[in-house]
Design a protein around this nucleic acid. Structure first.
Lengths: 330, 330
DNA sequence: TACAGTACTGTAACCGGTTACATTTTGTAA
DNA sequence: TTACAAAATGTAACCGGTTACAGTACTGTA
């Protein structure tokens, strides 16, 4: 392996000069820089970034904590993070937590171990939830966290859910069911709030029987459909808190002989790629997944450069995408 | 920050002993180990892994090169990699290359920069394709590479494609179209070969007009469907080389008024989660995505531990999953 | 020509671990 | 008790960069 000392010998300068020629070229005279570059080329020198990171006490690496990387929405967010990181010379360590707090904690420990400079976290639970002595650079995206000292990039979930519910109401639906996510997610709570608000505006009473719990998987959507569609008073519309559950609901409803949207309207949340290829194509709420990622990365970079984040909560725009899975109430 | 020297002071032993107590406890007497552990607890010492990595010239990190992380098949493979890596204390750096060779190369450079110990690569192109002086620990998964000095985990793509074509033939189809992937992928070539073999067995001539090129995106499936279904002699079945293209084909065919499977059978490849939620649910070839990842990681770990890989090409089993998108030829 | 100020370069300490080698302690057998 | 091997521990070099600080060369001015 050739080291900086080999290069300095070949170039006839000191190691400090070689180091400067690489990292702060303006600090070095034109002539020396050329000598150094020539020596680098001649010796085929590749700096040992691990040594550099050790010496500068930075890793130029961030960790992404994600509950499930195979979720298409999350994978798009990660893509946004990754592309932004790439552009500024940062690397992305993948932390698939499977929702397991102990795995989250172990990934969070990477910052203390200096393997990473900061964390972007895509679900609502905070890693190492105790009060931290030395706070870890952390940005929260997609799902909110109930703390106002942590920068968050999110959708106005309540507003979006309210708008979607209003859309269903405007189609004449009065019994609108919900397939929500796990209760401990603030995302679930926010969307539920928006739903309730929209119903309240029309003076429709909230019916607990119409609220089913899912876990954001298509299978849980199927289960929810089984329950909801066997009610005495069936819903005429089902609002699912993500597209996968909506696909599960739609699939199962069709199996039970319901026609979508004639008998039952189904809507989702996220607008994953597959939503448009459903049959019928799914009405849903589009989230700018990649933007979540790149925004979160940008905010984190700011923090890593020592800026105090100016706004603690950034909202990204949503868009109601009306396709063919919704129709007037039967 | 507390360092190993602080701990050694508190414990009243040398730094070497502290180091040994952590990494090779059997080298240290019971009593000393306890003293050291107590001192570690007292000082709240967290080893600086970056310093350790620098010193040991290992990073316990690997890079995954993936053309598109938002592809559901790849994201499952990555999950397999990540979980296996996690179990043995390795981290995974994400390298979304968008198919760009220069990005691939820059990620490959991370191994030389000692930021990573090895690479798992999920597409067929080799990074830094010139003959390398010091070969980088590299494992290829999913798509094959035309070199027998690089361990590869793959499906028997030709065999699987042949089996699927035989299935279509057995349903009476004689004009079977293909939506293939990019030509530079050996995966495309292998599957094409299997398809051709199956046709040859039935003495059906290969018709170039029935071979459309896609890029594994649903949109390219739609385009292919436009072309194939406007042929004078329309195909009665379309074999797509992944599920997303199949979804695009099916979607577009239905828009054009074709009924699947009555007028047209459509099959895919991969069995991504959404294949079963299509309407009609998609007949496809299941690949054990997570297994690809964990196998690849296991092989790479072996290489990193200095073992010469025994078998250069491991085949994982496929399974033809027959759902409702295929039927007898009209 | 002398001198101050600036630009450039060099020396060597430092980052926080690991580990080769030297030294001390312990254990066992004669 | 002594002799000697094995086990435990300590000392200090080392990994390959960065950078504080010191030193030297160069510039323009008086």
């Amino acid at each position: 392996m050739t080291t900086i000392r080999d290069v300095s010998r070949v170039a006839g300068v000191s190691v400090a000069t070689v180091s400067r020629a690489m990292t702060r070229p303006e600090k070095v005279s034109e002539k020396t820089r050329e000598k150094v570059l020539a020596a680098i080329a001649e010796t085929k020198y590749k700096p040992d970034v691990s040594a550099r990171n050790f010496s500068t006490r930075k890793s130029r690496t961030i960790v992404v904590l994600v509950p499930d990387i195979s979720n298409p929405f999350f994978s798009r967010v990660i893509r946004g993070i990754e592309h932004t990181a790439q552009r500024v010379g940062y690397s992305v360590l993948l932390g698939d937590t499977r929702g397991d707090p102990s795995i989250e904690d172990s990934y969070a420990g990477m910052v203390e171990a200096r393997l990473a400079d900061g964390i972007i976290q895509l679900n609502g639970r905070l890693p190492f939830d105790g009060a931290e002595e030395t706070p870890v650079p952390l940005v929260n995206a997609c799902d909110c966290v109930d703390r106002d000292d942590i920068p968050t990039i999110a959708l106005e979930n309540a507003k979006a859910a309210r708008a979607m519910t209003q859309h269903l109401l405007s189609l004449g639906h009065r019994r609108i069911a919900v397939v929500k996510g796990p209760n401990d997610s603030s995302l679930t709570r926010e969307r539920l709030r928006g739903y309730a608000e929209a119903l309240a505006e029309e003076a429709i009473e909230l019916d607990d029987a119409l609220i089913a719990e899912g876990d954001f998987s298509a299978a849980s959507g199927e289960n929810a459909a089984t329950d909801l569609l066997s009610l005495q008073q069936k819903p005429t519309a089902i609002f699912c808190f993500n597209d996968e559950m909506a696909m599960g609901v739609m699939h199962h409803a069709k199996q039970l002989g319901f026609s979508v949207p004639a008998d039952l309207s189904v809507v989702g949340f996220d607008d994953i790629q597959f939503a448009q290829y459903c049959d019928p194509p799914l009405t849903t709420i589009r989230q700018p997944a990649e933007s979540f990622g790149s925004k979160a990365m940008t905010v984190l970079l700011g923090i890593l450069q020592g800026e105090a984040p100016t706004v603690m909560r950034q909202h990204l725009p949503y868009e109601i995408v009306i396709r063919q899975s919704t129709g007037v109430a039967p």
